Amino acid sequence: MAEADEVYVNARFIKSQEKATVKTWNSEPSAELPGSQQQAAGGSKVTAVRVAVVVLLAAAVIALGYTGYKYHQTKEHLQKLIDENAAMRKNITETRSEVMTVQKPCPQPPVDTCHKCQEGWEQNGPQCYYFSTDKLTWEQAREKCRRDGADLVKIESEDEQLFLMQKLRDKMVEKEDKFWIGLTDSVTEGTWLWPDGTPLNKSLTFWSSQGEPDDWKGVNNENVDGEDCVRMGEKSGSGLKWWFDKSCMAPQKRICEKSAETGRPTCI
Rank of each mutant, 00 (worst) to 15 (best):
N91L: 07
W180A: 06
E28V: 10
A41M: 09
I255K: 07
G65R: 05
K253V: 02
T262C: 05
A87E: 13
T47Y: 06
H77T: 08
K235F: 06
C128A: 01
H115I: 06
K246T: 12
S209H: 05
D112R: 08
T188C: 01
N26V: 10
C248W: 04
N10I: 11
E257Q: 15
C256I: 04
G211F: 10
M165L: 14
E257Y: 04
V55Y: 09
A41H: 07
D225W: 03
S247P: 05
Y8F: 09
W25E: 09
A4S: 13
S157E: 02
H115Y: 15
P34H: 09
S132F: 13
G190T: 06
K90G: 12
S36F: 15
I181Y: 03
L183A: 03
A20L: 14
E212R: 01
M249D: 09
Q39R: 15
K171R: 15
S132G: 04
S236F: 11
T67G: 08
T21K: 13
K246N: 15
D151L: 07
R12Y: 04
G43P: 02
R169P: 00
L183P: 08
Q39C: 08
Q127P: 00
C256H: 04
A4Y: 13
V49C: 03
C267T: 15
G68P: 04
K258L: 03
C114Y: 02
W138S: 05
E156S: 08
E98G: 11
